[in-house]
């Protein structure tokens, strides 16, 4: 059915491809995928985190031959998946607290080692709050000790579960319940926030990668790569949140894609503290294309818009593009 021809219509951009052998398709295209998180969960319509978690865990389950246990921080993902009496998880899963998931995972990994069950692999998962803010202490410890855990941050850029408050990962100018678009500097302040992938890299752990729900194959490849390694590994996945971003539910993947194509979310991999690969921008767009679809940035547009703020955000994107060499000419920004 297949030939040696390199071009396959959709290549590996889509999840599957009838022209590819089944084992060359994504895990998500496999009818026998694990569905680590199954139907009936209470996530909002178009939830990027529910999607990201399934992408990551199904890939991890395949990579580990099914031998996965998961520790989950408090947050949307935990809440919408496990309201008594129903759980959406189909893998071994534990939730303890908001800020301790890295330590819980370290304990699990230690237990498995002591039990001689090291073939069972540990995945820890948390939102951005549980990762960059309240969970950072335990996470840094997990990194520093190089515990055999893959830690996955599903970054939706705020405390969505509690009603959309600002986190250390909320982008500049974004409206949240604690950074309202009022005053001279509407929305979240500039110059703050934690770049956790770089913080992780500073620990020189074996593997750090960023990814989004918009590039399934890339995400799955990174999970697979992470699972082929031991020690502390960190995967930072951008998962748009229709509720918190005030975006249309069908735009979840589109927004993740625009985040990468604008340069606001650089996609790269690093090993032992050194960037080893970046995903070049394929169809570069100005940041407006990304921002304008989100109600949390609506105060930047329209009659009382703030082109100066948009320009600052663009400068941030340009900085990313230059830093990670994401585009041939980082200075040139296309405008439609």
């Amino acid at each position: 059915m297949t030939t040696d021809l390199k071009l396959y219509q959709i290549g590996t951009f889509a999840a599957g491809n009838r022209l590819l052998d089944p084992d060359e398709r994504s895990v998500q295209a496999d009818p026998g995928r694990a569905n680590a998180i199954t139907s009936g969960h209470r996530a909002c319509q178009g939830c990027g985190e529910a999607l990201g978690a399934r992408f990551v865990l199904d890939a991890a389950i395949r990579a580990a031959g099914g031998d996965i246990v998961t520790a989950n921080a408090t947050g949307c993902l935990e809440v919408f998946s496990t309201p008594y009496p129903e759980s959406a998880w189909q893998l071994a899963w534990v939730h303890s607290l908001f800020g301790n998931v890295a330590a819980v995972a370290s304990g699990i990994a230690a237990a498995l080692k002591a039990q001689g069950r090291e073939h069972v692999r540990v995945v820890a998962q948390a939102g951005d709050g549980g990762t960059v803010d309240i969970g950072l202490g335990c996470l840094s410890g997990m990194f520093e000790r190089n515990d055999d855990v893959l830690f996955v941050c599903y970054d939706n850029q705020g405390y969505m579960n509690t009603g959309v408050q600002r986190s250390g990962a909320t982008p500049p100018a974004a409206r949240t319940a604690t950074t309202k678009p009022v005053g001279a500097e509407p929305g979240n302040v500039f110059g703050q926030g934690k770049d956790l992938p770089r913080i992780a890299m500073a620990h020189e752990i074996p593997y750090v990668a960023t990814a989004t729900v918009a590039d399934l194959r890339d995400l799955e490849r990174k999970v697979e790569k992470a699972m082929s390694m031991h020690g502390a590994r960190y995967l930072h996945v951008l998962v748009p949140c229709p509720l918190g971003w005030a975006s249309a539910s069908q735009d979840t993947i589109r927004l993740a894609r625009l985040a990468t194509q604008s340069g606001l979310f650089p996609v790269f991999e690093a090993e032992h503290g050194v960037v080893t690969a970046t995903t070049p921008i394929r169809q570069r767009v100005p940041v407006e294309d990304y921002l304008v679809l989100q109600g949390r940035f609506s105060h930047l547009f329209g009659e009382h818009g703030r082109p100066d703020v948009v320009a600052r955000i663009q400068a941030g994107a340009d900085h990313n593009i230059a830093r990670y060499a994401l585009a041939p000419d980082p200075e040139v920004v296309p405008h439609d």
Partner: peptide
């Protein structure tokens, strides 16, 4: 906090 959390994880893992 990490200490007891790690014990929680370990205990949950049997």
């Amino acid at each position: 906090f990490g200490a007891l959390s790690a014990c929680i994880g370990a205990s949950a893992a049997g």
